[in-house]
Design a protein around this nucleic acid. Structure first.
Lengths: 209, 209
DNA sequence: TGATGTGTTATAACGCGTTATAAATTGTAT
DNA sequence: ATACAATTTATAACGCGTTATAACACATCA
């Protein structure tokens, strides 16, 4: 077995043990000593491979996000803006399937004192949303005066901060997506051309939580 | 000196030392041992008086909020909904005066593992915002079909989660308020009667950050 | 004055994330 | 087979929030 093989075997043992602990006892109960025991590796090994506990959790979250973003926006819609709303539904579905697992990981990363971890997730989502608003602008779904990039930043900020409240345990993912839909559609009523704006209102369930 | 006098003297020493440390070195550098040294009290004392580090920080935050909420909504406006926007400006002014101090305290409370601390701040703000939307409904500023309480919950959630992003260091307080204004006004365009809705648009600076 | 109880102090300890140190194990190259 | 390099291991330690223990100071009440 080569150096790389041994490394990825250790990685496997650690990641599987971490998932096991988080699923059975919650992310808050995942400690490095407990993890080393469960994975049957030395306390030092996760630090060698991921740098920190946060680094390990980011790895776990990236697995989920890879699965999520794989077939994002694969639907067939009349408007880019409707596709954006559909993306919210997909996101809800993925996270809802294993809500506590994702929420716990999200939260631990969010409150870690590695600010670069937060910033990475932050700019990631803003980038994805901005790509969509820019595309909407290109096909004429946004009003002439609207800055597509600034709009994307505001919509991205909205979902990001709401997911922060979800991670903190103050919301379910369903409430999170419902609120984000309300905010996105409300803002887009002011930014979108008449036709896609009208199409958006069909997705608006008014002021329930 | 009575029991109560001695207690409040210790309280004073601790709170002043805490403010001193947070202002000079940041809230992240406030440790209980450092605090006990600086305040010239035993390590145990803050725990006796505030229960936990989070309890102390909540006390510090409450001082600020008392000053803020004291003359909230004291302006003289044609519409309740405009008063709500003005409240955002007041909030920005208060927090901006000492941004890093407030941000640090906010963040430490937010990430503490005392969930009741988060929940308290959460329901506090939602209550205040909901009181305003209910008042707006009573004076006929909201459309007939609109549930004022559900609306207040959504607006409260919006500012709360955005302030979470601020606390995490991803935004300035100015950006936080600007985003909240955009969201509130956009949503209120759908929920408000024509006249106040028109008045609100004057406060909308479109899609800058 | 003396007994009681409240509050503060000093000291040690726990589990946490993380790091340092040195030894042991194992792949790679000569 | 031998030497070198990469990786994992075991052990101890650090500062953190928090708690336990026991001694001490002092207000209150008899």
């Amino acid at each position: 077995m080569s150096f790389e093989d041994r490394k990825s075997e250790t990685r496997d043992k650690i990641e599987r043990a971490a998932e096991r602990i988080i699923r059975s006892e919650g992310a808050a109960r995942l400690t490095m000593r407990r993890l080393a025991d469960e994975a049957e590796v030395a306390l030092r090994s996760p630090y060698n491979l991921y740098g920190s506990k946060t680094g390990l959790l980011i790895t776990l979250l990236d697995k989920v996000n890879a699965a999520l973003f794989k077939d994002l926006g694969s639907g067939d819609h009349d408007w880019v803006l409707i596709e954006m709303i559909h993306t919210l539904d997909q996101t809800q579905k993925v996270y809802e399937a294993d809500e506590e697992y994702h929420r716990g990981i999200f939260w631990e990363i969010m409150i870690s004192d590695h600010p670069e971890a937060r910033a990475a997730g932050h700019s990631n989502i803003v980038r994805i949303v901005t790509e969509m608003t820019v595309r909407a602008k290109q096909v004429g779904e946004l009003l002439d005066g609207v800055d597509a990039i600034a709009l994307g930043e505001q919509l991205g900020l909205s979902i990001l901060s709401t997911m922060g409240s979800w991670a903190g345990g103050n919301l379910t993912i369903a409430q999170t997506i419902a609120h984000t839909k309300l905010v996105w559609i409300s803002i887009l009523q002011l930014a979108a051309a008449p036709e896609p704006a009208a199409a958006l209102t069909k997705h608006l369930s008014v002021f329930g939580d």
